[in-house]
């Protein structure tokens, strides 16, 4: 069963917003949080992804609204598939603010 569903499962990362700053954060393989999508843990197995999400949900003092976002494996780590996740990983397009400016 896990084998079958993992074949259809598309890669994910765990992401949400930081409690204090409100900016976008991603769960890493080292169990901490990063602001850089490329450093996020790529989850290719559905059961593992669910477990990692549950772990994130257990950290309400760090992250708000964690969820699994679809990504693809890029040369330098996970990269966004949908344009919404692309904007979340960089910042707004009208000002050089947010992640693209290297800050929250």
């Amino acid at each position: 069963m896990p084998r079958d569903s993992s074949r259809e499962f598309t890669p994910k990362v765990v992401t949400g917003n930081a409690l204090i700053e409100g900016d976008v954060i991603y769960l890493t393989a080292a169990d901490d949080w990063t602001r850089d999508l490329a450093r996020a843990e790529l989850l290719t197995d559905e059961a593992t992804a669910r477990l990692r999400l549950m772990m994130a949900e257990g950290q309400p003092d760090i992250v708000v609204g964690p969820y699994l976002a679809e990504v693809a494996q890029g040369a330098d780590g996970p990269r966004p598939v949908h344009f919404r996740e692309a904007f979340r990983s960089t910042g707004p397009s009208n000002y050089f603010h947010g992640k693209q400016a290297g800050g929250a």
């Binding site: 917003n17 409690l19 409100g22 708000v64 979340r88 707004p92 929250a104």
Partner: peptide
């Protein structure tokens, strides 16, 4: 209380919304 962990996000969200505070794509 939210920062200390005494309130969950589910408890805090309606309180912040009553005061005009949203959590948006990149920030509050």
């Amino acid at each position: 209380r939210r920062l200390s962990g005494a309130l969950t996000e589910e408890e805090f969200k309606p309180l912040r919304l009553m005061n005009g505070l949203y959590l948006q794509l990149h920030a509050y």
